[in-house]
């Protein structure tokens, strides 16, 4: 199936719903790793919005990206509870372990606040990390 076909399939899936834009953007992001200009145009046309409207929404939310990044992503929680449990001291090692190969992203709270520092890779969560465990997680990402 071509990219255009898949895109229009996603749009058709959600078009009948109330407030279809976010569900469409989630699926497009998931499928293509980004919501690029071409996707924005197609979505805008289908939902009778301007491309500026769609781009405004894409750029507002942290979960949507305009460019695909093929690197694996490790999200590290850097909110208050994880700070209280020492995540900041692990960051230097994490950045070193990630290098150019892995993308480190900050996330503000994974809801495991009594057991930090916490991280997320894909849909898998990791708690009670120390420096060694976090670096290993990054190396295996």
């Amino acid at each position: 199936m071509s990219r255009e076909q898949r895109l229009s399939e996603i749009i058709t899936d959600h078009q009948g719903r109330e407030g279809p834009l976010l569900p469409i953007l989630h699926d497009v992001q998931e499928e293509f790793g980004c919501v690029d200009e071409e996707a924005e145009r197609a979505i805008a046309l289908a939902l009778n919005l301007s491309r500026a409207d769609v781009h405004g929404v894409v750029s507002f939310y942290h979960d949507f990206h305009t460019k695909a990044d093929s690197r694996p992503v490790v999200q590290i929680c850097r909110a208050e509870s994880c700070k209280a449990r020492g995540v900041e001291a692990l960051m230097e090692g994490a950045v070193k372990a990630a290098g150019e190969r892995v993308k480190l992203a900050d996330v503000y709270c994974l809801g495991l606040c009594s057991s930090g520092p916490n991280a997320r890779v894909g849909d898998k969560l990791h708690a009670r990390l120390d420096g060694a465990a976090l670096n290993k997680l990054i190396e295996n990402a």
Binding site: G19, L22, V57, F60
Partner: peptide, 24 residues
Amino acid sequence: RAGAGAYVCGEETSLLNSLEGKRG
């Protein structure tokens, strides 16, 4: 419905905008 990583969408009116498919 799933949010998209915006903390401010925990505010009720911003959440409603997000549900409607707008900027939060």
